[in-house]
Design a protein around this nucleic acid. Structure first.
Length: 340
DNA sequence: TAACCGTGGCA
DNA sequence: TTGCCAAGGTT
């Protein structure tokens, strides 16, 4: 057995003894449900296992298979995703479920290329589903694999990492191999302070040999995060507050929301209010950090006494605001206004 | 290619 | 407190 086969064998042996028990994983040797594998992979995109686990369980209780998801009410789906972030994932889940229902007989395609063509499945997710759900040999590269492989071979740059990952991916048990790499990356070969003393691959690790494990993978410098400002408009009629639906694309796309003016580089006042009302600006502000900018929101509050609705939207019971499926930034604003 | 796209936990 | 980090994808 050569060195590269030995890596896969050693890793799989470690996996058989130390694999994490996760709700989307089938018991050892059993066939995984492709829908659950797909759903978990999408939920786990840039999202921790701890965050995903309860959301996954609730999701499959509500939409247990692809057919139910393809027929789901999109507003309910978006509300169910609220708080998880990267909301295009939820929109693409429904889109892909409809494609699978209409064009694939209701079953996920069982090969990487066809999976890759579905919305929301990129190189990583298509490979992961092909390997984990269908036992295909696929080169699965996520952040964990990139880190593990970069350290194992002191590989710098994505092409070098991919070549190395391709070389060590076994023909058999490719799905277990991928999950083993991810478990190793999540529990042993961590980004900070890796536990090399516990690593089943330590003897083969090039970076470890020179003490350079924390220098891999090589990360590009990050750009500064700009500051933006905006105003949230809380319009209350009796015990209800005005909620709107954000545009289908872009930031928080398709999500229920509190009305807000545009977010710019200077502090706005009461421009772009959804109604001509007696707006009062609160002293407190709400801050929220997105991936690529930080936001400071002023809070404007007014009453609305007419029976009409000033803009396209809905009156929502304030007492039930937590069930509206608001993204976190709006949930924060609602909590701040109600708490005062 | 690089910008855009969320959130919560942790050192 | 601030920045980093987590099973990435789309345009």
């Amino acid at each position: 057995m050569d060195a590269k086969h030995s890596i896969a064998a050693d890793l799989l042996n470690w996996y058989d003894a130390h694999r994490r028990d996760l709700p989307w994983r089938a018991p050892p040797g059993a066939q995984a449900d492709p829908y659950r594998v797909w759903l978990s992979e999408v939920m786990l995109q840039q999202t921790t296992v701890a965050t995903v686990t309860p959301r996954f369980t609730a999701w499959v209780a509500r939409w247990p298979d692809i057919a139910s998801l393809a027929a789901a009410d999109e507003a309910e789906v978006m509300a169910a995703w609220a708080g998880l972030g990267y909301y295009a994932r939820a929109r693409n889940l429904v889109k892909a479920a409809k494609v699978v229902a209409a064009e694939h007989g209701g079953r996920l395609p069982d090969n990487e290329a066809a999976l890759r063509a579905l919305p929301g499945l990129g190189d990583y997710t298509a490979a992961a589903v092909a390997a984990i759900a269908f036992g295909r040999r696929a080169v699965v590269i996520d952040g964990n694999v990139e880190r593990v492989v970069a350290r194992l071979f002191a590989a710098a740059g994505k092409p070098a990492v991919r070549a190395a990952a391709e070389a060590i991916t076994p023909d058999r048990r490719a799905g277990d191999f991928a999950q083993a790499m991810m478990d190793l990356g999540a529990t042993i070969c961590t980004a900070r302070s890796p536990r090399c003393m516990l690593c089943p691959l330590a003897a083969a690790c090039v970076a470890r040999a020179t003490g350079a494990q924390e220098s891999f993978p090589v990360k590009p410098a990050k750009k500064p995060r700009p500051q933006r400002f905006g105003t949230i408009f809380w319009l209350q009629r009796g015990d209800e507050v005005l909620l709107v639906r954000r545009p289908a694309r872009g930031l928080l796309g398709g999500m229920r929301a509190l009305p807000t003016g545009p977010w710019g580089e200077t502090r706005p006042a009461l421009a772009d209010a959804p109604a001509d009302a007696d707006w009062r600006l609160r002293n407190a502000t709400v801050t929220h950090v997105f991936t690529h900018f930080a936001l400071e929101l002023a809070l404007a509050v007014a009453r609305w006494d007419a029976q009409t609705i000033p803009v396209a939207g809905e009156w929502w019971p304030v007492r039930e605001i937590d069930s509206a499926g608001l993204p976190t930034v709006f949930a924060k604003a609602a909590a701040a206004i109600r708490g005062e």
